[in-house]
Amino acid sequence: MTTSRSTAETAGGRSSGSGRPPAWRGSTIDLGQQHPRYGERVIKVILVGAAWLSVAVTIGIVVSLLAPTVTFFTHVGLGAFLFGTEWTGGFGNKFVWDDKSWGVLPLVVATAIVTVIALAVAVPLGLGAAIYLSEYASERVRKVLKPVLEVLAGIPTVVYGFLALTIFTPILANLVQFNTIHNMLSPGIVMGFMIVPTVASLGEDAMSAVPLALRQGSYALGANRMKTTLRVVFPAALSGIVAAIVLGISRAVGETMIVTIAAGSRAQLTFDPREGAQTMTGFIAQIASGDAPQGSPVYYSLFAVGALLFAVTLLINLASIRLVRKYRQVY
C-alpha cells in the first residue's frame, strides 16, 4: 500500500460491494504482494524525514531565538525595548545590564529608511522591467535582458556593500553633503538595484499569468498597448505585483552586508538619510563579528533583535505568499 497517494483513502472509503458471488468459474489467482518491498518503505521514510526537516529548521530558528530572548526580557522591559528611542547596548561595562538603554527604535527606523530608499529605486525600475518583459519585449530582447537580471541577482551582497561604500558614496558626495563616509542613502540606492531582479521576475510572472484573451479583448476595442497594459493587465495582475513588492520589502529588511558595510555602526535615531545609522541586521552583524562575550547583555540583545527581525519578515513573507496564491487561484 505504499505506492499511491490515495490508496489509503480509496481502500478506507470503500463499501463492501455487492455481496454477489463472482461469475468467474476458472482458475483463481493471488493478487497479494509477491515479495516484501522493505526498500520502498525505507526510502519513503527518508523522503518524509527530509521534508519534515524543513519544519525542524523553522522550529530550530524559533527555539534558538526564543531562549536567549527570554533571558534578555527578564532584564529589559518589553515596552522599553520596543518603544525606547536610545540604543546604547555596546557601551559601558560589558557585563552590566543597567547602565545601557535598550530602545530598539533607532535600529528599526534606520531599517525602515533604508528599505524605503531601496523600494523607491526597486519598485519603478523592477516594475518597468517587468512590464517591458511581459508586454513589450520580443523573444530576442528577452534573451538578452533575462540574463542581465540574473547576473544582477547573482552578485554577492558583500560586493554591493563594498561598492556602495567605496564608489557610490563618493559619487553621491558630489551631490549631497554627507557628515561621515557612512550614510543611509548610498546603501539604500544600491540595495534597490539588488532587489530589482526580485520585483521584476515576480512581477513578470504575475503579468504573464494574465490570460491572453483579456488582452485581445482590449485590443479588439481599439485600445493600444499602453492602455491595455495599464487598464487591463496591470489591474488583473495587481495581487501578484503587490506580492513582488512585498517580497522586495522582506529582502530589504533582512539584507545585512550592504548596510553593515556602508551605513555604519552608530545606532542613532535619525530620519535624515544623509546620516549613517545602524539597522537591525547591521547591529547583529557588528556584534557577531566583534566583541560580544557569550552571556553578556549585548550578546542576548543580538537574539532579541534577531527575534524581532524574524517576526517582522515572517509577517511580510506570509502576506506575500497569500497574495501570490490569490492570483494563482484566479488564473
Partner: peptide, 30 residues
C-alpha cells in the same frame, strides 16, 4: 484511478473472482 487525488471506488471489481480493491491486494501485482 488510485493515482487521482480524491478518487474513490465503490462496488466490486473482480479479477479471476478476486476483489481487486480488497485488503491485501497489491496494486503493483494488479
Amino acid at each position: 484511478n488510485d493515482l487521482v487525488p480524491g478518487a474513490h471506488v465503490f462496488g466490486d471489481v473482480r479479477f479471476h473472482g478476486v476483489d481487486m480493491y480488497g485488503p491485501g491486494v497489491d496494486v503493483i501485482e494488479v
